[in-house]
């Protein structure tokens, strides 16, 4: 082994790394898929995505189509999920809503978890005034009633500016995670490999991105997953009062809000959207919970 020429050694190493690097991801994935809960969550989520993005291709009705021969009709061969008061096809509009809800959930989660990771780790690593400033901002945002602020701002989200809504929602979701990240960073900072890197002369920001954040990955991934459902649920609540995603975009929350008024005598206007939402949140939560167990086999009791 010792007499291997350099290039050969490099090759051996590259090969070994090629095999090794995904090993942790693979173990986690293995543990994840070994649980029934994980498999179920993943299967549900995957089929929801497929349905939301490919499902509309299977139906002759588009969201904008209105069938003037069928107002408020129950599900039938022509309209699989029935129609609304306007003659809109419920199947088409539900899938469009699901698309938007899934997108909003994912984007908000990625954004807020990203902010939480950076803010929390910088605060926890540098402490002092950096910490005080960041945590003061976090406290302020915690104290501000998010629902109220988003509601007031809702007119700004009209005419396709739903991305702004995503940003605002993310702005109100990162604080708690960032506090957890901060606490964990403080303890990780005392770990010897961070000290070792510091005493080697590695700059602080590199230490944060190379050692601190990657070692919080499990927490962050789980948190991001759970933030997906938090975002979807918050959007639903806002939509109930008309403060969520604004027309012409539709979300499941908006459909539920409309449907709840007619739920008693036209259940199809309510239950498809509500059911879709419940399954989405359920599957996301299942995935998040299983991921937590997969990352940390000790936490959920010994296997």
């Amino acid at each position: 082994m010792m007499t291997l020429p350099e290039e050969e050694f490099a090759e051996v190493q590259a090969e070994a790394e090629h095999v090794r690097v995904p090993s942790r991801a693979r173990t986690v994935a293995g543990r994840f898929f070994r649980t029934r809960q994980g498999r179920l969550g993943f299967a549900l989520l995957a089929s929801l995505f497929l349905l939301a993005f490919l499902g509309p291709l299977a139906s002759p009705w588009a969201v904008t189509d209105m069938d003037f021969s069928a107002f408020m009709q129950p599900p039938s061969a022509g309209h699989w999920f029935g129609t609304l008061q306007t003659g809109t096809d419920v199947y088409a509009v539900t899938l469009r809503g699901a698309q938007k809800s899934l997108l909003v959930g994912l984007l908000v989660a990625v954004l807020s978890t990203g902010v939480a990771a950076v803010a929390g780790s910088f605060a926890g690593y540098f402490l002092g005034w950096t910490d005080r400033t960041i945590m003061w901002v976090a406290d302020l945002l915690l104290v501000l009633p998010a629902f109220l602020i988003l509601a007031i701002m809702s007119p700004l989200f009209t005419s396709g500016r739903w991305l702004l809504f995503v940003v605002m929602l993310a702005l109100f979701l990162w604080m708690v995670t960032s506090k957890i990240v901060r606490g964990m960073t403080r303890s990780i900072k005392e770990r010897e490999y961070i000290k070792a890197a510091r005493f080697m002369g590695v700059p602080s920001w590199i230490i944060i991105f190379r050692h601190v954040i990657p070692n919080l990955a499990s927490l962050l991934i789980v948190d991001a997953t759970l933030n997906v459902s938090a975002a979807i649920l918050t959007e639903t609540s806002l939509s109930y009062f008309g403060f969520g995603i604004q027309p012409p975009d539709v979300s499941l929350g908006g459909l539920i809000a409309d449907g709840s008024k007619t739920a008693l005598y036209a259940p199809w206007t309510f239950w498809f959207a509500a059911g879709g939402l419940i399954i989405t949140v359920l599957s996301v939560n299942l995935v998040g919970d299983s991921l937590r167990d997969a990352f940390d086999p000790g936490a959920g009791g010994r296997a």
Binding site: R24, K195, A196, F199, R210, P214, N215
Partner: peptide
Amino acid sequence: RRHLQVVFQDPLASLDPR
């Protein structure tokens, strides 16, 4: 720092597991 290096107590804690 080049000439001053450190070895810590817990070898697992002093090596980044990732």
